[in-house]
Structure formats: structure tokens, C-alpha cells
Amino acid sequence: MNKLILSTAALALTAGFAMADTVRLGTEGAYPPYNFINDAGEVDGFERELGDELCARAELTCEWVTNDWDSIIPNLQSGNYDAIIAGMSITPEREETMDFTKGYTLPSPSAYVAMSADIDVNTAIVAAQTGTIQSDHVATTGATLVEFPTPDETVAAVNAGEVDAVLADKDFLAPIVEETELTFVSDVYLGGGIGMAFRESDDELRGKFDAAIASMKADGSLNAMLDKWEIEGKF
């Protein structure tokens, strides 16, 4: 998800990840097609498939942990899991407190969606998920920003007439537009692509995932996976 946490967390007081242990991957589980919870109650989506493949290539044993978006960075820093793989855009603000792998997507568009394509998004009332690069962008325009804790609530607000439009990742909004009366208004490119985030003390672990991502780029399997999940930002 293309997201920006506005506050930073204190670094964990514990030591970095021990390479012999199981790697815990933290995700939101609420942002399809990147990550979601399937009917069996398991983490699913593009990032589940990607994360499992990266762990196999890095010869690491991994397990999945779900966490609400608004506390996903603080809980990485406090040691509740070892990496974030949750549609998180690489931004200068986040790089002040965390280290990222190289992006596993190139920057892809965010989109405004509304009941009418005639909406002026620079003067409208626009919904965005709290703590995202989309909410940060709306705040720099002439629009009135209304924030919600989850992406589903932002779409519900448009459908209920509480706001004029929503700004979110286009990959997330595309299937919603196909199934509803909502329509795309315009696109905007934000952030520097999506990557995995790590504590700054876990450089060795980050390096293992970086190498695995590079190998998937080199053999074409990453682009094939992006195609499968209909995600823009191929290499």
C-alpha cells in the first residue's frame, strides 16, 4: 500500500534478529490485492505469495503476523515481528527510522474515485486512509481531507455520500470500480515504489531479502507475479 506514517516510534531496546530463528513477517491483511485474509482465515494476496517465495530463495523459515496499519511501524520497532511486507511505499520520512529493501514494485498510480468523473478533486471533500501517502497528498491540496482507519471505510464514505471522492492505490480501487457505480477521476504518482521495511539494526536480514528480490527480477518471476495479481509497477 502506498502509505506514510506521520509519527515515528522509539527503537527497540532488544538486540537485532538472530539469523537462526524464524522470521516473522508483519502485514495488514486488509489491502487487496497486496494482502488480505482469505475465507480460511489465512493471509493471502500478492505479498503472501511474494513473501513465501522470497523466504524460500533466502532459505529462511518464515511465519506471518497481522497488525493494524496505524501501529504497524511501532510494532516492528518494538520487536513484534522482523519485517513489514504490507504495501508500504518507500519514502524519505520512513527511511529516517527504518531500512528498506529495493522496491518490489516500481511507483504505481494512486487514483481518485468518485460517483462522478466531474468532481474537482482539488476543492472536493476527499477521503483517505489515515497515515498514508495519499492522505498526506490530499492535505497539500485545496481539498478537505477526511481520514478513516481502514481503506474499506474510505470507499464506504464515498458510497454513502459522506465525502465526494477517495484517494487510494489504483490497484486497490480497480476491482471496486468494476463492481460498483464509482468511476475513476484522475491518477497521481506518489512515493518511490513498495518495499519491505526492517529495523535499522537488521541489515544482514534485509540483505538476504534484497538478494532474493534481485533474483526474482533477474529471472522474470517478479513481473509474472505482478501480472498474476494485476498490479502495476512492473520492472
Results as ranks from 00 to 15, higher is better:
Glu153Ala: 15
Glu153Lys: 09
Glu153Leu: 15
Glu153Ser: 14
Thr154Gln: 08
Val155Ile: 09
Val155Thr: 05
Val155Lys: 01
Ala156Leu: 12
Ala156Glu: 14
Ala157Pro: 10
Ala157Glu: 09
Val158Ala: 06
Val158Thr: 06
Ala160Val: 07
Gly161Ile: 13
Gly161Met: 07
Glu162Asp: 15
Glu162His: 04
Glu162Cys: 00
Val163Glu: 00
Asp164Thr: 08
Val166Pro: 12
Ala168Gly: 08
Asp169Lys: 01
Asp169Trp: 02
Asp169Arg: 01
Asp169Leu: 00
Lys170Leu: 07
Asp171Val: 04
Leu173Met: 14
Leu173Val: 11
Leu173Ile: 08
Ala174Tyr: 04
Ala174Thr: 12
Ala174Trp: 05
Pro175Met: 09
Pro175Gln: 07
Ile176Lys: 13
Glu178Gly: 00
Glu178Ile: 05
Glu178Arg: 15
Glu178Cys: 10
Glu179Arg: 15
Thr180Cys: 06
Glu181Tyr: 04
Glu181Arg: 07
Glu181Gly: 12
Leu182Asn: 14
Leu182Lys: 09
Phe184Gln: 13
Val185Ile: 10
Val185Leu: 10
Ser186Met: 07
Val188Thr: 14
Val188His: 08
Tyr189His: 09
Tyr189Thr: 10
Tyr189Val: 12
Leu190Gly: 02
Leu190Lys: 01
Leu190Asp: 01
Leu190Ala: 04
Leu190Asn: 01
Gly191Tyr: 00
Gly191Asn: 08
Gly192Thr: 06
Gly192Ser: 14
Gly192Asn: 13
Gly193His: 11
Ile194Gly: 07
Ile194Glu: 15
Ile194Tyr: 11
Gly195Val: 11
Gly195Ser: 10
Gly195Gln: 10
Met196Gly: 09
Ala197Val: 11
Phe198Lys: 04
Arg199Ile: 13
Arg199Leu: 13
Arg199Asn: 09
Arg199Met: 09
Glu200Ser: 13
Glu200Val: 15
Glu200Arg: 14
Ser201Lys: 12
Ser201Trp: 00
Asp202Lys: 07
Asp202Gly: 11
Asp203Arg: 13
Asp203Leu: 09
Asp203Gln: 14
Asp203Met: 09
Leu205Arg: 03
Leu205Ala: 03
Leu205Tyr: 03
Leu205Pro: 03
Leu205Thr: 03
Leu205Trp: 03
Arg206Asp: 10
Arg206Gly: 00
Arg206Tyr: 14
Arg206Val: 00
Arg206Leu: 13
Phe209Met: 13
Asp210Gln: 15
Asp210Asn: 15
Ala211Glu: 05
Ala211Gln: 03
Ile213Gly: 10
Ile213Phe: 08
Ala214Phe: 11
Ser215His: 01
Ser215Tyr: 02
Met216His: 05
Met216Asn: 06
Lys217Met: 10
Lys217Trp: 06
Ala218Val: 02
Ala218Ile: 01
Gly220Gln: 09
Gly220Met: 07
Ser221Phe: 11
Ser221Arg: 14
Ser221Pro: 10
Leu222Gln: 04
Asn223Asp: 06
Ala224Trp: 08
Met225Arg: 02
Leu226Gln: 08
Leu226Ala: 05
Asp227Arg: 02
Lys228Thr: 01
Trp229Leu: 05
Trp229Tyr: 14
Trp229Asp: 03
Glu230Gly: 06
Glu230Asn: 12
Glu230Arg: 08
Glu230Trp: 04
Ile231His: 02
Ile231Arg: 03
Ile231Cys: 05
Glu232Asn: 06
Gly233Trp: 00
Gly233Ile: 04
Gly233His: 11
Lys234His: 05
Phe235Cys: 02
Phe235Met: 03
Phe235Arg: 02
